[in-house]
Simulated assay, not measured.
Amino acid sequence: MPLNFGKAAFSRSAGAPKDFLKDGLPQFAFAGRSNVGKSSVINRLLNRKNLAYVGASPGKTTQINYFLVDDRAYLVDLPGYGYAKVSQAEKERWAKLMETYFQEGADAITAGVLIVDIRHKPTENDKVMHGWFRESGCPEIIVANKLDKLKKSQVEPALALIRETLELTDEDILIPFSAEKGMGKDELIGLLNKACES
């Protein structure tokens, strides 16, 4: 039975490792830099306007947020990295929290979803996050968001640059996506369902 992504509810926020959910349900971990539209991608998947918090200024997700889908799996919204105007100490706290999530929760991660901006070359932080997913051994789906901001002729070169920068193989999954318009949504839902079943 495919997951019903229309049936979703906020479950909890984890600001410390003791709050991590470890109840055996599959977890899809969503990562990306602060202004890449991570919350918008999650909201698009769940058909909700603002279940995942969409901030006017980047860096609003300061904890690990769990959303329960169909009572059978979690979408896990990880803190954004990069642009947020917060103190160095706070950035280090986020980094530590995420590092611990990857170390302690690796078994729980069913699939990692790395969201990058299709208009730009992936950042060093994107490469680090990609490395974390690879090392955790879980399947990774790379979502190139903001597709609606490009002309058709720009899409292939942009995807080629992402593939090259992240050193993707033919096996790696890269989906052009638009949280704004919903392009790529069905493909991503299909892949998450597939990961859940395997």
Rank of each mutant, 00 (worst) to 15 (best):
L159M: 11
D126W: 07
F10Q: 12
V36I: 14
P79L: 12
D186H: 08
E197F: 11
Q88M: 07
K151N: 14
L168A: 00
P139A: 02
L166E: 01
L147P: 01
H130R: 10
D19P: 14
L97M: 12
G80I: 10
E90G: 04
N50V: 02
E99R: 15
K146A: 02
P58L: 04
D126S: 07
L174V: 05
A73V: 07
E124K: 06
E99K: 15
T165Q: 08
I118W: 01
S11I: 06
L75R: 04
S198F: 10
I141H: 00
E104V: 09
D23S: 06
F28N: 03
L78E: 02
I42G: 01
E164V: 08
M1S: 05
S178R: 07
L161S: 07
N50G: 05
K7Y: 11
E167G: 07
S136K: 06
V36E: 10
R12G: 03
V116D: 00
S87R: 12
G6P: 01
K121Q: 14
V143Q: 00
E92V: 13
E197D: 11
D117A: 04
S87N: 12
H120V: 04
E104S: 06
I173T: 11
K18S: 15
E164C: 09
M1E: 11
I109V: 13
F67K: 09
A56T: 15
F67E: 04
G6M: 05
S39L: 04
